[in-house]
Design a protein around this nucleic acid. Structure first.
Length: 196
DNA sequence: CCCTGATTCGC
DNA sequence: GCGAATCAGG
């Protein structure tokens, strides 16, 4: 595959939209992300610097480094960092209004029976919200579909048809995705309750 | 381990 | 010019 006009334009477009090199490569097909990045650089549009701690030049070994050609290209439209914007959907699982009592909420709110909870039962509401949210977009994988890098957080009752594993990309090392890692690994501030 | 972009250098 | 290999960071 060669860099035809069209392909280059798609590259420019996608890069401008903030797509990653690998995504662009996938879209284009026939090229690797390396190729894309290389092309991006050659095109001189690698501008996506926004504070990456790397202002100074790398003191590698570059004898007689030619100064960058100060070709001033007319840039009336400085591509502002287009933030993809997360369409966060705050889904109030339960509209339990309690204005008079801002007290702590019950344990786990909505229906889903929480899986293997270490022992603690006080997980940050934020983490829980995240879990509830993430379960909506879970891959809902079956046991056989799990791999080394799919979240193995179980949801539902194993005795039911309504049972599946999260399946989202795990967080480096951990067996769970980010959201589930949040509720899985608690500081173990568990309080031995249930005084016989 | 997964991902990201950046750079180098033989082709 | 091209892009795999490599590097550097998250």
């Amino acid at each position: 595959m060669s860099w035809t006009d069209e392909r280059v334009e798609l590259l420019k477009k996608m890069w401008g939209e903030g797509q990653s090199a690998s995504q662009i490569a996938k879209e284009l097909g026939g090229v690797t992300r390396n190729a894309v990045i290389g092309k991006v650089h050659r095109l001189g549009l690698s501008n996506r610097n926004s504070g990456t701690s790397k202002p100074a030049a790398e003191p590698k070994e570059k004898p007689a480094a030619a100064p960058k050609p100060a070709a001033a290209a007319p840039k009336p439209k400085p591509q502002p960092k287009t933030e993809p914007a997360r369409p966060v959907t705050p889904e109030p699982a339960s509209a339990d209004a309690r204005p008079a009592t801002p007290a702590r909420r019950q344990i786990i709110p909505a229906g889903q029976p929480l899986p293997p909870q270490p022992s603690a039962n006080e997980i940050s509401p934020e983490a829980l919200a995240k879990v509830n949210e993430v379960e909506k977009k879970a891959k809902k994988l079956g046991l056989m579909e799990l791999t080394e890098r799919t979240c193995k957080w179980p949801v539902g009752d194993p005795a039911t048809e309504d049972f599946w594993f999260c399946g989202l990309p795990v967080q480096q090392g951990k067996p769970y995705c980010e959201a589930h890692v949040g509720v899985a690994f608690q500081p173990m501030s568990a309080r031995r309750d249930r005084k016989r």
